[in-house]
């Protein structure tokens, strides 16, 4: 009978041990089952973006010199109501990054800012079709970088 070499024996045991321990604890450093994207099939997507006066949609990071008419709260943004009466739910950490960018780039004294709309662009899966919606968040002014 072929005997297992020590490195392979160790590798098999560490591989099995890590996998088994991770299933037991789910998430406790250094063990994790890495369950990202293993949930039920998603039925919507949403991104917090900018819509300019011409209707062009761009990422928030493309703009600087921000001024918004309302205070932008993370919780409010996560629960933005869409024209269909349902909420648009952009990914939390992306919303945080976007809000950080807006706060870190306030209106500069001589900036030529244009009126823009902050929206949550939402894609809803309805049957076999994807419905696109713009869910308004706030009126702002910002300068395209």
């Amino acid at each position: 009978m072929t005997r297992v070499r020590e490195r392979l024996g160790l590798a098999i045991v560490v591989f099995t041990c890590y996998s088994g321990a991770a299933i037991g604890v789910t998430n406790a450093y250094p063990f994790s089952t890495f369950p990202m994207y293993s949930e039920d099939a998603p039925n919507f997507g949403a991104r917090l973006v900018v819509k300019d006066q011409a209707g062009e949609r761009r990422e928030i990071e493309r703009y600087e010199s921000w001024t918004c008419a309302a205070d932008l709260s993370f919780d409010d943004l996560e629960q933005t109501i869409c024209p269909d009466g349902r909420t648009g739910q952009p990914t939390g950490y992306l919303v945080k990054e976007a809000l950080d960018h807006i706060r870190d780039n306030p209106a500069a004294p001589h900036a030529v800012a244009e009126p823009v709309e902050l929206i949550v662009r939402t894609w809803r899966l309805e049957g076999d079709q994807i419905r696109e919606l713009d869910c308004p968040v706030a009126k702002c002014t910002a300068q395209l970088d």
Partner: peptide, 29 residues
């Protein structure tokens, strides 16, 4: 093992194989 765990989770849940899952993830991100 970290990758095998991730693969196993996706295999067990099966949601990623839905016709529109990857499409929605791309739109979302």
């Amino acid at each position: 093992a970290t990758y095998a765990n991730a693969g196993l989770q996706k295999l067990m849940a099966g949601g990623l194989f839905d016709d529109h899952s990857f499409q929605i993830y791309v739109l979302h991100h």
